[in-house]
Every structure is written in C-alpha cells, then in structure tokens.
C-alpha cells in the first residue's frame, strides 16, 4: 500500500467487508479499490473473515415442517420459472472476486440499498468471469430439471495414489455431472472427459483449477449407464491428471 489513498481506504475496509460502510466512504473507497490490488486483496481477506464470523452462529432447529415447505416451494418455483441462469464460467476461481463478493449474491433491489458495496465489487469480478468464459461452459437448456428414475453414480477422483476429489454423475433424460477437486493437482485448465463403456470419449467442458482445486457442474451429454470413467486432462499437454471410476450399479 504505497498510495497515500491506501491509508484512507484502510480505515473503511473493515466496514466495507462487513457491508456497513456509509455511502460517502464507500464511494471513495471503491474509486481507490479499482486501481489498488493490495487494498482489494486486503478487502477480500476481511470479507472472508466477515463470512466466517457469520458462520459461527449457532444452529437452531427450525419449526416442524420447515424443510418440507422449503423443498416444496423450491420445486414449485423450479417448475414455474426458468432455471437460474448459469454463469458462462462456473466461479471456480477467486480471480475476480473482489472484497466479499463471494457471498455477495445480488441483494434485493431497494433493500439494504445503502450497502451496495459488495455488488459493486462483484461487478468487477463478473467482468473477469466473463473474460474467462471464452473457454468456459454453461449448463445447456437441456440440462433442466431432474427426471424420474434417474440413476446416480459417484466415484473418487484419484491422482496417482491420492484421492483428490469426487465425481457425481446423474443420468436420465438430462444427465449432468458434478466434479469437486480438493487436492493439489497442480494444473490450471483441465478438460473433463467421460469415457463410455464402448471407449467413446465425451468431453464435458474445460475448467480452471485454482491452486489445484475447483468445483463445477455441467451437462454430461451422456448417461451414467454408459459411462465407466471420468477423466481430468491437462488442457494444454493432454496428460491425464486425475481419474474416477464410475461403474454403474443397478
């Protein structure tokens, strides 16, 4: 933080991270944050801390029937409205996440309007995400909704002798795959491939691992009954960096 403005901004970073900075301080700080990577990094760290603080709140059992009502409403809403739009790139990375943008999903218009900081910061993140979208992915419209009698298979992602994540494949009319990578695979961009029983390889998409980790979901374009293996392939070298057996059960 060599910019003299850093010291002024530093005074309000905590309030920004907590989402409680007043409008004047926020406007001033945002102008500085746009050009100061150090302050953005500081804000992001404080935002993560603010989130962790909230997560300490004790759990409380909701009233009877709450879970059933919520699930019913979600499924009703799903059937009544288009599925939420998927980002061009699943936000695997924190690259574009300024401040506390991670938890900064859009707030209701008109509510908490004096705290749009997270939205504003997230706008920067969105621009970066779109830029990354050139090699990204989107859930296709065909991936909407579950189907009755869908089959699901899971498999541990293994790199060498290490378990580095998990693959979940949901078959049916609109099959989709979820991949979570927790290990240090040491690769940036990877191509996710599904290997069918007959040997045919179906490419799901290309994704970025940040620090060797990431998580995404995408249309599988195949079904678990035909898939025996999922591969993560280094997008540049073509080397298989992790694989998961997905032998279907019935």
């Amino acid at each position: 933080m060599t910019d003299p403005a850093c010291s002024c901004t530093a005074d309000v970073l905590a309030e920004l991270a907590l989402g409680v900075a007043d409008a004047e301080a926020r406007a001033s700080a945002l102008a500085h944050l746009e050009r100061c990577a150090a302050c953005r990094a500081e804000l992001r760290g404080l935002g993560d801390t603010a989130d962790a603080l909230v997560a300490l709140t004790p759990e409380v059992d909701p009233p009877d029937g709450f879970e059933e009502r919520v699930v019913g409403c979600l499924l009703t809403a799903r059937d009544a409205a288009p599925l939420p739009r998927r980002a061009a790139v699943h936000p695997l990375t924190r690259t574009g996440r300024a401040g506390s943008g991670h938890h900064g999903v859009p707030r209701p218009a008109g509510a908490g309007g004096h705290r749009p900081t997270r939205r504003a910061l997230t706008t920067v993140a969105a621009a970066v995400a779109v830029a990354l979208g050139a090699v990204g992915w989107a859930l296709s419209g065909a991936a909407r909704g579950p189907v009755p009698n869908a089959a699901m298979t899971t498999g541990a992602l293994v790199s060498g002798q290490r378990s580095v994540g998990e693959v979940v494949l949901v078959a049916g009319r609109s099959p989709w795959v979820s991949v979570a990578v927790h290990g240090e695979t040491g690769v940036g961009w990877v191509r996710c491939e599904l290997v069918e029983r007959g040997g045919e390889v179906v490419t799901v998409g290309t994704f970025r691992l940040d620090g060797g980790a990431g998580h995404w979901a995408a249309a599988a374009r195949t079904g678990s009954a035909q898939v025996r293996q999922a591969l993560l392939v280094d997008a540049y070298s073509g080397r298989v960096v992790a694989r998961a057996g997905l032998a279907a059960t019935s």
């Binding site: 993560d48 603010a50 989130d51 962790a52 909230v54 997560a55 709140t57 939420p84 998927r86 980002a87 699943h90 936000p91 695997l92 990375t93 924190r94 996440r97 506390s100 991670h102 938890h103 999903v105 979570a180 940040d210 620090g211 980790a213 990431g214 998580h215 979901a217």
Partner: peptide
C-alpha cells in the same frame, strides 16, 4: 453457480 469453494465452505456461503 456463484459459489466458490476456494473462498468458503458451502455452509459459510449460505450463512452469509
């Protein structure tokens, strides 16, 4: 789709 596992657990994200 906005969830970023590198930033926080799903529970922390949801709590926020």
């Amino acid at each position: 789709s906005s969830y970023d596992p590198r930033r926080a657990t799903v529970g922390t994200w949801l709590a926020a």
